[in-house]
Design a protein around this nucleic acid. Structure first.
Lengths: 152, 152
DNA sequence: TATTGTTATACTCTATAACTATA
DNA sequence: TATAGTTATAGAGTATAACAATA
């Protein structure tokens, strides 16, 4: 950051610029798949297996009341379903339908391809180091993967 | 990506994880400053100088009709103002008020500090390389800086 | 005709508070 | 009492379409 710079050049500024870029790619890809960004995120989380409402709210970082509406809308579109949890009559479990699984997988492939295309602007060696730093930073804050592997 | 991985580990997955992390920091910081994330972004853009409505819509990536409401709300809160453009009676120019300038600066300092704290999880040498890669990627797509320096 | 900006309308997303049912 | 989830309400953000005024 030498005197005379007329644009920010620190790591913080880079994080913000890249983050908005990635979010724009995510939003555009969601839209191409007929989903809102939050719906896409929800489907990807559910691809890792069924979840309770409160659990989902925690993962997505929204209040449980907001989650009610989110699940209503994906359910109305046939992408997910609420079902009872044996042993606790208060609780519900949200599961992807076959269409929801397909939508989640298709979206995930698309967004990954778009972002790999973005990263292709870096030479291979630099890209590898960059990816390692990304993982290290995300792990340091416990950021969850978007598309967790389904349980065994 | 060896067989047996049960979590994504490519660059695309890292970009998504980090991006959501940064957006969460951005949102939390906005809220602490009494702003929505879009309002914070708008104020930071305006810190670079006055802008027309259509120009702002382009920078923020929203339709001009949506921008009307965004500017209404920051104007109602005394953070920005619409004024006439001499020579074109259709056009308006949006300018930060003194309070808006102060809010933009304070927010920018806070969010930069938060993100520098995030990046502090990397050793200095790796952080420098990482920052360089961030800038290169953002520049490759023409991503604008959040907080552009005011014109000379 | 094209451009600048607003209005009208509808929908998604979100939070807070109050509620029901079950544990 | 505490937990799981919903309903009610309000507001922000967004898009599309139709409009007014000016260029």
């Amino acid at each position: 950051m030498t005197a005379g710079d007329d644009e920010e050049s620190g790591v913080a500024a880079g994080l913000i610029r890249l983050s908005f870029l990635v979010q724009a790619v995510f939003a555009r890809t969601s839209e191409r798949h007929g989903l809102t960004p939050v719906q896409a995120k929800l489907l990807c989380v559910l691809a890792g297996g069924p979840r309770g409402m409160a659990e989902l709210a925690g993962i997505l970082g929204v209040e449980k009341a907001a989650l009610t509406g989110l699940v209503d809308r994906v359910e109305r579109r046939g992408l997910a379903e609420r079902s009872a949890v044996p042993g606790d009559r208060r609780a519900l479990r949200v599961t992807l339908t076959a269409a929801g699984r397909q939508a989640a997988t298709a979206f995930h492939h698309s967004v990954s391809a778009e972002l790999d295309g973005l990263a292709a602007a870096l030479p291979a060696a630099e890209r590898a180091r960059f990816g390692a730093s990304l993982s290290r930073l995300a792990a340091a804050r416990g950021a969850p993967a978007l598309f967790p592997a389904a349980g065994p």
